[in-house]
Simulated scan of single mutants.
Amino acid sequence: MPKKERKRLQVVISDEQDALLTRTAYELSSPERLISKSEVVRLAIEKIARELGEGENLEQYRAILDHEAVADEA
């Protein structure tokens, strides 16, 4: 069976965001299966897209992004 082709995306994240990814991957992992940070990112993308499709949390996500944009400018 051929391997599923995936697109690669490179992003720059802060040390704090990397720590959040690491902690989330650790919390989602079990003794039977370790979860990677990439899997956490894919899960987050799906969750956000699903919520936006259902009209949920739009303003909350915009507020988070606006806050990050202000922090990036500082």
Rank of each mutant, 00 (worst) to 15 (best):
I35W: 14
L43H: 14
P2C: 04
A49E: 09
K3V: 10
V70F: 15
S29Q: 05
L20W: 09
R33C: 01
D72I: 08
E59V: 02
L28C: 03
E39M: 02
K47L: 15
V40A: 00
R42M: 04
Q10I: 13
S38I: 04
K47R: 15
R50I: 09
L9S: 08
I35R: 09
E56A: 14
D18M: 14
Q17M: 15
E32Q: 15
I64E: 04
K4W: 01
K3A: 13
K3N: 10
R33M: 05
D66M: 08
I13Q: 02
E32I: 08
L43V: 04
A69T: 06
E54I: 01
G55P: 05
A19R: 14
L21G: 04
E51H: 07
V41N: 01
I45H: 04
I45L: 13
E46K: 15
A69G: 00
I13E: 00
K47F: 12
Q17D: 11
Q60R: 11
E73Y: 06
E56R: 15
M1S: 14
S36R: 08
K4C: 00
K47Q: 15
E56W: 12
D72M: 10
D18H: 13
L9F: 13
S30C: 02
P2T: 08
Q17C: 15
R33A: 07
R33T: 08
I48N: 02
Q17T: 11
V11I: 15
